[in-house]
Design a protein around this nucleic acid. Structure first.
Length: 495
RNA sequence: GACUCUGUAGCUCAGUAGGUAGAGCAGCACCCUUUUAAGGUGAUGGUCGCAGGUUCGAUCCCUGCCAGAGUCACCA
């Protein structure tokens, strides 16, 4: 690859020559620190206060206009950008000739000087000290802009994901997404903390994986001499903590699932799970709705087409399925549902049982309609092996909700099954599915059963896919846009 | 996994009904002390994703492969 980058190598060669020039003149191109006293945004927001005052800023040069004995630099820090004016009179000790004339776009500089307005009334800094803080050796993509609009922008999605640091330097929108992501997680964390939840950490490397139906990644520990699995969910460990006497716990962490990738799926993704003892699924609904409303309000988010202000809708699984399909699917058997699927061109596999078929029908008829936040409750037991039976039902319905918005499922919650005998039977049923070839079926976890035998209080639990929530709240269509370094295949197969 | 589209200079893109490629920006040299998508002059910069095939000749046509995007399928 490097051999056919002659032009790039030439640019690097020139930069290296500049490095040498600086060193020959006793200028360290990579000094150890800089006394940065001001963020650029402060100066811009309060320009009257700073006019004619001394300030010091630092940041990356995003454009240069060299004009012989004077030069303009546009410098960008985390907070904003500002123009810097330099000339060979205001700088001391040949600084203009030795430093400024050698500057490149992409260099990181420290600037000391005073705030003033140019002839065209642009707020600027007249530099009396320009210090190179880090030399750019690899050129940046185009950064020409006018009135905040980029020209020839850095647009190639693949390169933006692979070289996220360039994306962040150049595309403010991209950086803002990750600041929003931070704020969203921060708001959630505060909300849970205020509600007396304790944040915990449970193992990523697990001898037995569980808590969801998914294919795991496997790895190997040398000194234990045993295989380990990367977690697919936090669930079983968090419930052990409820057994242990923690009454409210949560964890925000990466899960890993060895499955397909698309705009809604990354092999590692961030999940929030929280569990509350002596609570049921309806308590968790209230808590979840409060959490999301609080965060939308706190962040003053404007989300396209979604109304977070009114109370979230609550529909029963079968009611809403019958309503949107205009058929009494709730009264049908597997065979009848299959024929409905055929009539609507829903992809059908003959191995689909009752539960799977219902799930498919729901995805087809109902999910596309769920734009505003909507709780779906009263799921059929066949779809919900970890949930308690609904207290007033005939045993065919469980206490569970899923929260949908913008056609996506973003939360899943149960009144958690705490009967160890029942739980063991359900594990064994999963084991049978696994033996007959279902790679995503769950594995019997004897230690977890033993924990339930010790006794777990009635507990409500919720899982929320953070990446998807961030997608919705930042109006992004791909999960890759809300993950800093999304999974990508090697660019060249033999590297 | 299936289908469609994309891959040309560091970046953004042209282009050739098949005769080994152009522009803007960046970079280089020179001029320029309030410019701002600064400007002017000049000179650079490419195995046209990779590998085969057809052809006198391929960046262009064909096949395979690699990577990405989009749709669909599976899963959160």
């Amino acid at each position: 690859m490097s051999d056919n980058q002659k032009n790039l190598n030439e640019i690097k060669k020139f930069r290296l020559e500049k490095l040498k020039f600086l060193k020959d003149n006793n200028i360290d191109p990579f000094p150890h620190n800089f006394d940065k006293n001001n963020n650029i945004i402060e100066i811009k927001n309060d320009s009257k206060k700073y006019e004619n005052h001394d300030i010091s800023i630092a940041g990356r040069i995003i454009s240069i206009r060299k004009m012989g004995k004077s030069s303009f630099l546009n410098v960008k820090d985390m907070s904003g950008k500002i123009q810097v004016y330099t000339n060979n009179q205001n700088l001391s000790n040949d600084e203009y000739d030795l430093v400024v004339r050698k500057l490149d776009i992409g260099d990181i500089v420290g600037i000391k000087g005073s705030v003033f307005y140019t002839k065209t009334q642009e707020l600027s800094i007249k530099a009396n000290k320009v210090e190179l803080l880090s030399k750019n050796l690899h050129p940046l993509p185009n950064m020409k802009e006018k009135d905040g609009e980029l020209f020839f922008s850095f647009d190639d999605k693949e390169q933006r994901y692979r070289k996220r640091y360039l994306d962040l330097i150049i595309n403010d929108d991209s950086r803002d997404v990750f600041i929003s992501r931070f704020n969203i997680i921060n708001s959630i964390r505060n909300y849970l903390n205020i509600n007396s939840f304790i944040e915990v950490e449970t193992p990523v490397l697990q001898p037995v994986y569980g808590g969801a139906n998914a294919k795991p990644f496997t790895t190997y520990h040398n000194s234990l001499d045993q295989n380990l699995f990367l977690r697919i969910a936090d669930e079983l460990y968090l419930k052990r903590l409820i057994v242990g006497g923690f009454e409210k716990v949560y964890e925000i962490s990466k899960n890993f699932r060895n499955e397909g990738m698309d705009k809604n799926h990354n092999p590692e993704f961030t999940m929030l799970e929280f569990y509350s003892a002596y609570s049921d699924v309806y308590d968790m609904m209230e808590l979840t709705e409060g959490m999301i409303k609080n965060l939308v309000k706190e962040m003053k988010l404007e989300v396209n087409g979604i109304d977070f202000k009114k109370n979230f809708d609550v529909f029963s699984f079968f009611d809403v399925l019958d309503k949107y399909s205009n058929i009494k699917i709730s009264e049908m058997n597997t065979k009848e549902i299959h024929s409905v699927m055929k009539n609507n061109n829903i992809p059908l596999d003959k191995t689909y049982g009752y539960a799977k078929s219902l799930d498919k029908a729901f995805s087809f008829f109902v999910e596309p309609k769920l734009i505003n936040p909507t709780f779906i409750i009263n799921y059929p037991i066949e779809l919900s092996p970890l949930a308690k039976v609904e207290r007033n039902s005939n045993g065919k319905i469980v206490e569970r909700f899923e929260l949908f918005m913008n056609k996506m499922e973003i939360a899943n919650s149960f009144s958690e099954l705490n009967n160890p005998i029942d739980q063991k039977e359900r594990f064994l049923a999963q084991q049978k599915l696994k033996d007959s070839g279902d790679e995503e079926a769950q594995v019997l976890d004897n230690d977890f059963i033993e924990a339930l035998e010790v006794g777990m209080p009635p507990t409500g639990g919720v899982g929320i896919g953070i990446d998807r929530l961030v997608m919705i709240l930042t109006n992004k269509k791909s999960i890759k846009d809300v993950i800093l370094f999304p999974a990508m295949k090697n660019e060249h197969s033999n590297t």
